[in-house]
Amino acid sequence: MLQQSRFSRLSGWILLVFIYYIAAASSFGGFMLKWQFSEGTRYTLPMMLDGTADRPFVYRQLLPMVANEVGALIPERVQASFLNKLAEDPPVSNPIHRYFPNASDAANPRYALRYFVVYALSFVSMFMAMFLVRAVCLEMKFDKTAATLTPLVIALIFPLIQTEGGYFYDMPELMFMALGTLLAARGKTVMLAIVTIVATLNKESYLLFLLTLMPLMMTRFSIKRTAVTTGGLLVLAALVNMAIKHKYALNNGGVIEFQLSSHLQYLLNPRNYLRTEINYGMLTTKGFNLLNLLLFALVFKTGWQGLPRHARQQGLIGIVLTVPLFIAFCYRDELRNLSFMWMTFALAVCATISVALSAAHARADNESKSQSSLEDLESRISHKQQAVATR
Score class of each variant (00 low, 15 high):
Met1Trp: 00
Met1Thr: 00
Leu2Val: 01
Gln3Asn: 03
Ser5Leu: 03
Ser11Ile: 00
Leu15Arg: 00
Ala25Leu: 12
Phe31Ser: 14
Gln36Glu: 11
Tyr59Arg: 11
Leu63Thr: 08
Ile74Thr: 03
Arg98Ala: 10
Asp105Trp: 01
Asn108Lys: 03
Tyr111Ala: 10
Phe116Met: 09
Leu121Pro: 07
Met130Pro: 04
Val133Ile: 15
Val136Trp: 06
Cys137Arg: 02
Cys137Thr: 06
Cys137Met: 13
Ala146Cys: 03
Leu160Cys: 14
Gly165Phe: 04
Val198Gln: 07
Leu207Tyr: 15
Thr212Ala: 08
Thr219Gly: 04
Ile223Ser: 09
Ile223Arg: 13
Lys224Asp: 06
Arg225Val: 12
Arg225Pro: 02
Arg225Thr: 12
Leu234Pro: 11
Ala238Gly: 13
Val240Trp: 10
Lys245Asn: 14
Glu257Lys: 11
Glu257Val: 14
Phe258Tyr: 12
Phe258Ser: 10
Tyr266Trp: 11
Leu268Trp: 05
Arg271His: 09
Leu274His: 07
Leu274Ile: 05
Thr284Arg: 09
Gly287Ala: 13
Trp304Asp: 03
Ala311Pro: 06
Phe326Trp: 07
Tyr331Pro: 05
Glu334Lys: 03
Leu335Glu: 12
Ala346Lys: 05
Leu347Asp: 06
Ala348Arg: 06
Ala351Val: 07
Ala356Gly: 07
Glu367Arg: 14
Lys369Phe: 12
Leu374Trp: 07
Leu374Gly: 02
Glu378Gly: 00
